[in-house]
Amino acid sequence: MNNELLNDLVLSVKSQNLHVLNVIVRQDGNIIAKHDFEEEKPTLLYSVSKTFTSMAVGIAINEGYFKISDLVIDFFPDIQHVPINEYLNEMTIHDLLCMGTGHAECPVMKADWNNGKEWDISQLFFQEPVIFKPGTHFTYNNASTYMLSKIISSTTGSNLNEYLDEKIFRHLDIPKPKWDTCPIGIPQGFSGLYLTAEQLSRFGQLILDKGMWKGKQLIPSSYIEQATSVQIKTNDFTPYFATADHHQGYGYQIWMNSYSNSYRMDGLYGQYVVMLPEKNAVITYISDEPQNMTGVLELTWDTLIEKL
């Protein structure tokens, strides 16, 4: 271990008053540095959960449950009272993965989480107008990831958490984790997964290594190559917190970084797994930073990248 590697990062966290909880640096497959600002524990990963959903989809495609070109509408024959237009009929699994569904707004924004009755995000998804041709316009869309979770459930016979436990978690020696569900019991997919920083860093290593773990191919390498390359442009994604790291394009539930040939998992309040193939490195952050999430990500570029 070379925890001195993190000296500048620790100083920067304190000087910026960033609420980072845990940082882990892996290189060449091993943990080379680690710093715990607070004791490590299973933590809600927010949108980092999306990348796990994506990898479940890649495995399911490889196992023949469905194809990336399959039409979304075909998985939901019971959806009623939905205005079916040409664009909705064109939407595919690929469009769900890259958030190119054609929606202008995320349908989950209209969800009533205080409603005590059972309800389903898929109904909101289909009620939301599809105004862009699928695959042409990026809208950050939690509902698209939920739809992937539901498709996993309907095609594989296992829900997302059970499927990932069998296909990934147990191989990484991660006990079956908690995953928050929606009111009808489907794992959220877009959020809801709880892991420790060290467990999460193992998953980041798996992605960096193109799905290979201890000599076993857990995720098809060809799928990871697609997932970690630009599938849709994100130039029009302009929330108040957007930086250059939000405008490099989006893969399959994975963001591209401004640093060349690198990509990341990205979650609310500063949950990040930054994968740097040129450095053969993975940097994992667990945080609870409500004000300056991107400041956590930028610790990588400002304090670490030149030392790796």
Rank of each mutant, 00 (worst) to 15 (best):
K110G: 03
P187H: 04
D245Q: 05
S222K: 11
L206M: 08
D236Q: 15
H94T: 08
Y163Q: 14
D70T: 05
L88Q: 08
L71S: 07
P107W: 12
I174T: 12
H19G: 05
A244M: 06
R26N: 14
V230T: 02
R26G: 09
S49A: 02
G102M: 04
H103T: 07
D245R: 00
F203N: 01
F237T: 01
D209A: 11
D266N: 04
W113I: 00
L308K: 04
K67Q: 08
N257H: 12
A56W: 03
I61D: 07
N85M: 06
T51R: 14
F138H: 02
S221M: 06
K50Y: 08
L268C: 10
S201G: 10
V274I: 06
F132Y: 12
Q127D: 15
L297E: 02
M55Q: 12
Q231F: 10
I184M: 09
W213S: 13
I219M: 04
L164P: 01
A197P: 14
K176N: 07
E40S: 11
K41D: 06
G249M: 11
G251K: 03
S287G: 11
F75L: 09
Q199R: 10
P83Q: 09
Y194E: 10
N235Q: 15
L208S: 06
Y140D: 04
E278F: 12
S262W: 09
I207K: 04
F66P: 03
V48M: 09
P183Y: 04
L276K: 03
L21N: 11
I254M: 06
Y250S: 01
V13I: 05
R202P: 04
F132A: 11
L164G: 11
D112Y: 11
K67C: 09
Y240C: 06
N30R: 09
I73P: 05
S122D: 15
K133N: 10
L11I: 10
I31M: 08
P177N: 04
S262Y: 08
T155M: 12
T136E: 08
L193D: 03
I254C: 07
A111Q: 06
D120G: 12
M256T: 01
A281I: 13
K50H: 04
K214T: 05
E278P: 04
N257A: 08
V20R: 01
D28R: 05
I93N: 07
G116E: 13
H137W: 08
W255D: 02
H246D: 07
V10D: 10
H137P: 00
L9W: 01
Y269D: 07
I184G: 08
E289L: 03
